[in-house]
């Protein structure tokens, strides 16, 4: 999936900024500037791996968009359900992998770059997105029809917003960690996405080849969770030694 390639550079960008924490001198009348955790590039490690699917290969059902002919035209090709995307080798895409615990007490800087969700061909792109608390979510409508994006948050405030063809992007933020926020379009019932909100930058989404990579991770003991929208979650205890490159694999079982 495209996301894999997108997320990796984002992690690098995040990391680059984290490695040079701001040392602002707090004046008595101003709120103290947040002290961000300083990642030591000399000792930071990497967690890489693959997510596999075991079981009968799923046959994704076609998605019927004929109720909105403009969507059929905009989609280019026959849409299929993407809630379980497995390639010929059994690699599982669209799994959200993130550090669930082990980073407590550390505060990470919020990236200034937005995370973008596009509505294109009456489809959310990407389907699975990770974002940090306070980071801007930019919602784009590239379609010739009206969408109404509706993140059904429970920890954060739920909201929905209408976006007609050609309307400017919507910018929103989530203020609390939440795994995962289901997103729907109030108008097109087949449109689904999920957003994972974290207070740190250590997350990734498995690509079409099932692979994922979380970089710049400080050495330490972590619980890492893999989340899949239909198959649930799995956890692993992972230890990252100084400058370590740890490989792991998650396997989800189907029916």
């Amino acid at each position: 999936m495209k996301l894999h390639t997108v997320f990796f550079p984002i992690c690098c960008v995040v990391f680059g900024s984290c490695s040079t924490p701001a040392h602002k001198e707090a004046k008595s009348d101003a709120a103290p500037a947040p002290v961000y955790f300083k990642i030591d590039p000399a000792t930071a490690g990497t967690l890489a791996g693959v997510v596999r699917f075991k079981g009968a290969k799923p046959h994704p059902k076609p998605v019927d968009m004929t109720s909105d002919p403009a969507c059929v035209d905009a989609h280019h090709g026959k849409p299929h359900d993407e809630s379980l995307v497995v390639d010929a080798k059994g690699d599982l895409a669209n799994v959200f992998i993130y550090v669930k615990s082990g980073l407590e007490g550390r505060k990470f800087e919020t990236p200034s770059d937005p995370v973008t969700i596009d509505q294109q061909g009456c489809w959310f792109e990407p389907r699975i997105a990770g974002i940090q608390v306070g980071q801007t979510l930019k919602v784009v409508n590239s379609d010739p029809v009206t969408h109404n994006i509706h993140p059904m948050a429970e920890v954060n405030r739920a909201w929905n917003h209408s976006q007609g063809a050609g309307d400017p992007p919507i910018s929103r933020k989530f203020l609390k960690p939440e795994i995962m926020i289901p997103v729907k379009c109030n108008i097109h019932s087949w449109m689904h996405a999920y957003i994972g909100v974290l207070d740190h930058p250590y997350f990734a989404v498995s690509g079409n080849d099932g692979k994922f990579r979380i970089s710049n991770l400080p050495p330490g003991d972590y619980v890492v969770e893999a989340w899949q929208e239909k198959l649930g979650t799995q956890q692993q205890k992972i230890t990252i030694p100084p400058s370590g490159a740890v490989e792991t694999a998650f396997t989800f079982k189907g029916e």
Binding site: T146, N148, H150, S162, N186, I187
Partner: peptide, 13 residues
């Protein structure tokens, strides 16, 4: 059509 779609989506929260 835009107006009807706006309502169909529940407007803006």
């Amino acid at each position: 059509r835009d107006v009807v779609d706006f309502y169909a989506g529940g407007g803006n929260s």
